[in-house]
Design a protein around this nucleic acid. Structure first.
Ligand SMILES: [Zn+2]
Length: 544
DNA sequence: CGAATTTGACCTGCGC
DNA sequence: GCGCAGGTCAAATTCG
């Protein structure tokens, strides 16, 4: 569609507000891109909603990296003021100009001192960021390990008494080391560490691992070959045509084929945009009219790497066409860019929750697992996660469309099976703040490279704590000479500082699948998302 | 002209 | 076995 390409992207930092405020005028014809009656103001249409934006993050990291370089060498005044390096360059340039022409040396020195101070502040901020990132990384690993162990314990306990043992085994999977002495601990550790590029892979592998002794053996044998193994699993999931290869074994072990499929993670978000950008490149390969839904369901597959089995379905909620439901399936068989990592992290964490929580979901709404995994110490979560063990595939739904309060009172998903249960789900808080960009302008996405970018203005102090806000103000003042960069960096810093460490990592999504020019290396370690992040502290508003 | 999208045909699983 | 529904393929079409 032509009009599709005219749509713009948005970067959301806080779904609670943004998704609702998503300004859109989408001239799409069909429901898929259809535009609900509201929000038809004269703002540019959205091409794609970016829930896991990383480009902005990349930009930020580029800025930081260049800042580092600038620190190392003498700043010049040549660079683009919008660039992070100019934070320093600008000042130095200004210093030269004012001091060199008609200002006394004293003033020049003052300015130089000020510049030095800014340098120092930059350094501090960078080190803080690095420190936070490192801490978060380690926490992430620990959390995931704990999650897996928890899942395993649940599985072990439930499988003994539960009549749905097979289902649990298929969907819930603990660490192989606990369960299977044959599997070396290192392997578990490795998976538990959740290489950002394959969070879901680990989960899936574990799932498949569990299915049958034969499969377990097969996987154990291939443990040393991660990629092959991943591909294998992925393929077995991906195309029905490939299934027959594995089916005989499955049949022998009395395992229904569908159970082999991976957990699904469904994201419900209020969005007028036809897509949510999650950092991956997707190619549409089909569209169907789903029963009971006037809006077509679109099928996409990941094209970031040949043979990547990851697919997603995008569909509008029949009950509220303003809600976009994106369902992810499968695991990427390739390294992921930071943008995609946000998604992968979120979905993998969700999947982990699903795998651990599904064992108890049928017992009631308590979902103790989830509560344990994502303690209620989190003051508030802005979304809900829904586990559905009775669905064809184990599915977890992340609802980004409602506040926890309203969710509790008016949970609208009547279409969910009785066994479905809900609980506050902080993941999205993470993905929102870490994955949704840090206030940078969006880059055009893969399908609309030439689009004008939507500037995103941060409103950082709004939800910041006192000290955070003040720090933010300090930084802001220091770099106020460049509004663009100020906005971007301020949002980033406020997010980093105001949010838990995880938000500082590279798992924010960059809106689009094409962020090749952004290198996060060095500065922002690529880290998986963390479920135990508090609410995002940064709110953005679109400024189109 | 290559790549992405569209869209009807086809395949598979499932319930009757 | 048949029909339905979900999902995928691939030729045709559109786009950049
Ligand atoms: Zn992929």
């Amino acid at each position: 569609m032509d009009h599709n390409r005219r749509c713009h992207e948005l970067t959301f930092l806080h779904s609670g507000n943004f998704l609702r405020e998503a300004p859109v005028s989408t001239p799409m014809a069909d429901c898929h891109a259809g535009n609900p009656s509201h929000n038809t103001i004269n703002r540019p249409p959205i091409r794609e909603v970016d829930f896991f934006s990383v480009n902005s993050r990349d930009k930020f990291d580029d800025d930081i990296r260049e800042m580092k370089m600038s620190n190392g060498s003498r700043p010049t005044s040549k660079s683009d003021p919008r660039d992070g390096s100019n934070l320093l360059s600008l000042h130095s340039g200004m210093t030269r100009t004012t001091g060199g022409e008609d200002k006394p040396d004293a003033e020049l020195r003052v300015l130089e001192v000020e510049l030095e101070r800014l340098h120092e502040e930059n350094r501090k901020l960078r080190s803080m960021l690095d420190h936070i990132s490192r801490n978060y990384s380690s926490l992430q690993s620990q959390l995931l390990i704990a999650m897996q162990k928890q899942a395993h314990h649940q599985e072990v306990m439930k499988s003994r008494s539960s009549p749905i043992k097979s289902t649990q085994q298929l969907t819930d999977r603990g660490p192989p080391d606990v369960n299977d002495p044959k599997v070396p601990d290192e392997k578990t550790t490795g998976e538990a560490s959740f290489s950002p590029t394959s969070n879901m892979e680990a989960l899936s592998k574990e799932s498949d691992h569990l299915i049958t002794p034969r499969n377990k053996f097969r996987q154990t044998c291939s443990l040393n070959n991660e990629d092959d193994n991943v591909d294998q699993m992925s393929q077995s999931w991906g195309s029905p045509r490939n299934d027959p290869i594995l089916k005989p074994e499955q049949a022998k072990d009395d395992q229904p084929e569908p159970a082999f499929r991976k957990a699904r993670v469904s994201v419900r978000a209020r969005s007028e945009a036809p897509l949510i950008s999650d950092g991956c490149q997707w190619r549409k390969y089909g569209q169907k009219m789903a029963k009971g839904n006037p809006c077509p369901r679109a099928y996409y597959r990941c094209t970031m790497a040949a043979g990547c089995p990851v697919r997603k379905q995008v569909q509008r909620c029949p009950e509220d066409k303003g809600i976009l439901i994106t369902t992810y399936e499968g695991n990427h068989s390739h390294p992921l860019p930071p943008a995609a990592m946000a998604t992968a992290s979120t979905t993998s964490a969700a999947a982990a929750m699903l795998l651990s929580g599904s064992t108890t979901s049928k017992e009631g709404p308590a979902n103790n697992n989830s509560a344990l995994l994502f303690p209620s110490s989190i003051p508030y979560a802005s979304t809900m996660a829904t586990l559905s063990a009775s669905a064809p595939f184990p599915t977890i739904t992340l609802d980004l469309t409602q506040t926890p309060n309203s969710l509790m009172q008016t949970f609208p998903r009547t279409h969910l099976p009785p066994s479905t249960s809900t609980f506050p789900f902080p993941l999205h808080g993470y993905s929102q703040l870490a994955g949704l960009g840090l206030g940078h302008t969006m880059y055009g996405d893969g399908s609309s490279p030439g689009h004008p970018k939507l500037p995103v203005l941060p409103v950082p102090a709004m939800q910041l704590g006192q000290h955070q806000a003040s720090l933010f103000e300090t930084v802001k003042a220091a770099i106020a000479s460049d509004p663009n960069f100020t906005a971007a960096l301020a949002a980033a810093i406020s997010t980093v500082i105001g949010a838990p460490p995880g938000s500082a990592d590279g798992s924010n999504g960059g809106g689009n699948g094409r962020n090749e020019n952004s290198t996060m290396a060095g500065i922002a370690p690529v880290l998986p998302g963390s479920p135990h992040l508090p609410q995002s502290c940064t709110t953005l508003s679109t400024n189109s």
